[in-house]
């Protein structure tokens, strides 16, 4: 089966003082219809830039310098701006972290949804409005027919995120990209939102990309996961594989640093020393080497950039074999 959305060797950069600074480097991933791929990473890991750049939304002066972004086989990066714009709204939906920034405060929700519909479809104003009510009902906003004419500020944070989701799925996209969709929400509301996203994916057979920093959300929601660090994918596999036996020291360290609600109490967390590197000053060799517990000069950690190795469950680490034998 071919992927609904696939990135091949995507590399995006901004001009730097001496040479171009690579924000994301050689990112390859794919997501199939009906499947959820989680992309995990810390701030600055490039998890968001990967998708903004593949959709032609990377702010200037950043640009994609290599790679392909295939939507059902068509390379988005080769489309003309007008074609890309149409594709973005219609075939790929997006939901962002901050539900306030995605909505214009001076327009009614009905106006904002009908605007999306009428920009892409030849339908009348009243038909578009009916469709807007339907969409709000689908994202489980109570009393949708009455609330459709409210302004964004009249909705709570969780409800706003639902409105944005309704706009994202308005044109029946094949791929839904959700960037930290629940980070700004409280935990009980987050649970409701995640359920909604899962239901929508199953009902429409969409391919879903879930960008998050929360490993709990990944465990709950995703089928496969890609872990990003310093602009690269360092580990990828099915959620079951990666969570059962993480292979990259960064992933292993992440699991050790989370205070879980059922872990034995009184234990000390094992933090990762230091902080992620500045994209302009990424170390040579493995970018994680300065923070890594398994770093070894003999293995070339500080000189040779490791490549993703493995079939299915892959990790980019020179010390993989060592970690496996000790595990």
């Amino acid at each position: 089966m071919s992927a609904a959305f696939e990135l091949r060797g995507l590399t995006a950069a901004v001009p730097g003082e001496k040479r171009a600074i690579r924000l994301v480097e050689d990112v390859s991933l794919s997501v199939h219809a009906g499947e959820t791929l989680a992309v995990v990473g810390e701030s600055g890991s490039g998890k968001t830039v990967t998708f903004t750049s593949s959709l032609g939304l990377l702010p200037k002066p950043g640009r994609v310098i290599a790679g392909e972004a295939l939507l059902e086989g068509v390379d988005l990066l080769k489309l003309r701006p007008e074609e890309l714009r149409r594709t973005r709204g219609a075939r790929i939906g997006m939901v962002f972290q901050d539900p306030l920034t995605g909505l214009n405060p001076v327009f009614r929700v009905s106006e904002q949804i009908t605007e999306v519909l009428r920009a892409h479809l030849p339908i009348s104003r009243s038909a578009a409005r009916d469709r807007a009510v339907e969409l709000l009902t689908r994202v489980q906003i109570p009393e949708a027919a009455r609330r459709v004419d409210d302004y964004p500020h009249q909705f709570s944070g969780g409800m706003r995120q639902r409105v944005l989701t309704a706009m994202a799925i308005a044109l029946g996209p094949r791929v839904l990209i959700a960037d930290e969709p629940t980070t700004a929400l409280d935990v009980t509301v987050q649970a409701q939102m995640l359920d909604l996203l899962g239901d929508l994916r199953d009902a429409d057979g969409m391919a879903m990309v879930l960008i998050t920093h929360d490993l709990g959300v990944v465990a709950r929601q995703a089928d496969r996961v890609a872990v990003m660090y310093a602009g690269r994918i360092v580990e990828t596999g099915t959620v079951a594989e990666v969570f059962a036996a993480p292979r990259h020291p960064y992933t292993i360290s992440l699991f050790r640093s989370i205070p879980d609600i059922e872990a034995p109490t009184g234990t000390r967390l094992t933090p990762i020393a230091g902080s992620p590197p500045d994209p302009a000053r990424r170390p040579e060799g493995c970018a994680f080497a300065p923070r890594c517990f398994a770093v070894s000069d003999a293995a070339g950690c500080r000189s040779v950039r490791p490549l993703l190795a493995g079939v299915g469950h892959a990790a980019s680490c020179h010390r993989q074999s060592m970690l496996e034998t000790t595990a």
């Binding site: 935990v187 709990g216 709950r220």
Partner: peptide, 12 residues
């Protein structure tokens, strides 16, 4: 407590 997603796919 029930809503907190935990990093354990089997339990989740």
């Amino acid at each position: 407590l029930s809503a907190v997603p935990r990093p354990d796919p089997a339990k989740e």
